[in-house]
Design a protein around this nucleic acid. Sequence first.
DNA 1: CGGTCAAGTGGAACCGCTCCCAAGGGCGGT
DNA 2: ACCGCCCTTGGGAGCGGTTCCACTTGACCG
Lengths: 345, 345
Amino acid sequence: MSSTAQRRPGAHRPTLEEVAVLAGVGRGTVSRVVNGSPRVSDRTRAVVEQAVAELGYVPNRAARTLVTSRADAIALVVPETETRLFSEPYFADIISGVCAELADSELQLLLVLVRDQRERDRLSAYLRAQRVDGVLLVAVHRDDPLPGTLEELRIPVVLAGRRADHEPLSYVAADNLGGARAAVRHLLAGGRERIATITGPLDMEVAEARLAGYRAALAEAGRAGSDDLVGLADFTEQGGRAAMRELLDRVPDLDAVFCASDVLAAGALQVLRAAGRRVPEDVALVGFDDSIVARHTDPPLTSVRQPTAELGRTMVRLLLDEIAEPGGPRHQLVLGTELVVRDSG
Amino acid sequence: MSSTAQRRPGAHRPTLEEVAVLAGVGRGTVSRVVNGSPRVSDRTRAVVEQAVAELGYVPNRAARTLVTSRADAIALVVPETETRLFSEPYFADIISGVCAELADSELQLLLVLVRDQRERDRLSAYLRAQRVDGVLLVAVHRDDPLPGTLEELRIPVVLAGRRADHEPLSYVAADNLGGARAAVRHLLAGGRERIATITGPLDMEVAEARLAGYRAALAEAGRAGSDDLVGLADFTEQGGRAAMRELLDRVPDLDAVFCASDVLAAGALQVLRAAGRRVPEDVALVGFDDSIVARHTDPPLTSVRQPTAELGRTMVRLLLDEIAEPGGPRHQLVLGTELVVRDSG
DNA sequence: CGGTCAAGTGGAACCGCTCCCAAGGGCGGT
DNA sequence: ACCGCCCTTGGGAGCGGTTCCACTTGACCG
């Protein structure tokens, strides 16, 4: 039973021990070389590296994790209620940014959708089983219990967006208020008089902030925004339609609508058209997110773009910091937004 | 230097051993209870379960993985070149389906974007490090080396779509040929005479199959599809525009275009409009994917819907099969598609 | 009533790695 | 020539599970 070439690819994976034997050194030495410790002579290092290459050795992560209790992985957690996110560049860009930033580390990315209490529990179990070093949390609602749980478990977290003005955890957010204000200023500059808004669900700080931006722009122009001009919706197209209908009922003479998302705007647009209003002649329309729909509606939507990939990258950077220095200071960043003017207003 | 640091609440996770002590049984017994082995008396089981609950015990996955060499995780691998996927419901639905199916297992989902050779190598290393039990592969091009690598490593794989007609690996695909044929039949039924097509990159079987469906429909109607009527593009909007321009040059009297994707169709639509053609009066337009753009163009696009979430679910099911029975038979499934008629043709 | 056997249980061995400690060797200083 | 020190190195002791084997026990059988 000679230990011959288990050379069949895929069958046997060489262990550190085998590398040590081949290189004629001890296990500790191989470990040091593999992990780039400086306490190894150049000659030995070369020999070991040769052996590693020859055997195609790759360290077994489970074994390493077991002893270091680092998982070398982070999780991106998304409430499934937000699956809509997936169909927008927002999410794609976040992922893209996250992966880009992760590429230089040895970390892996776990994707976790949480759709109900059961899955929430499952997630807790994961975390408790020490499967990840940190968590990226997207689209948190104000009363989401998850951030609290994570904090209790002492697991580093970074949020995309914040739960409220005053957010204790680390987060990276887009300047929603500023973006919304810019959008409404643009409408004002275009001479619009009766500017309405359709908001997202106000238990999300994003929606709240965009509404605040709308109000701020009106206020600085010396106009009191009447509540009649505010239509409430969730972030769906259907919600946009319903809200637009109500607004038209309540304020038939409105001449502009700032929508808290492009999808909302798309819904609103349908209703406006059905009501015989021309966009932008009769009613100007501005969205938010600069998502793919914005470019394809007729007319294309003026919208607010967020630096989403950058947001993903930054989140990872912050998370790595927190992982490296647990209990360190929290980091909170707000990234700028940009108005993209198209034909809708 | 006393080993303090570990007493922070939330820091220390109870081990199997501690549960055993509390329950007054051996480690093996606890393990059996935790893993649902039948070889435990009801009384003992109850005692152990009590102890588990009391301590909030959750098995350490790394330790388990180390000895069982099951990773309890699968990877979803996406070539980054296909990030466009992310902005379409296609991908969102795949993920959603995958997660839904995974929810009942103990498996986790790793998301891996591969954007260049370096990351491809990194992926190989992951796989070799036994971090996953299987791989879901999306958007494979014909000459993609990844499937081959995986096969060599003896890692179970299921593809979304296939590389060619004759695909050795397991896959789940939509009936692209059938869908395309249905789309073109619909155009024929509408009385269209000069039906063109804009294809995706022909090194992908999806694109090829959709083109084949187009040809099949023409053939069965007794019309030889001239090559003049075929415009080549990648799956981008820009590609759609370019291809549409060429087609108009070559075949000014075309009265319908079947596009291999909605995004292509959206591009084509812009060019048609710019050229003064009315859709659908002068030129009928049909897309594929029933993506979010399809509903928002003006007019909304007739398109072919694929059962994408189902596709994700099925992929997982097949993969679990392969994992359970390595070296077992390959499974290959084709799921039906459905024509969604809107105003564009 | 001894013998057979299945069920239930405890515990050792081991998975592959990191970490630490002790030991070997080289070298400058005295 | 000897001592002390630093640089390298080998290898033991776990990390927290699973698995297998051996042992105890009580039931059942002839």
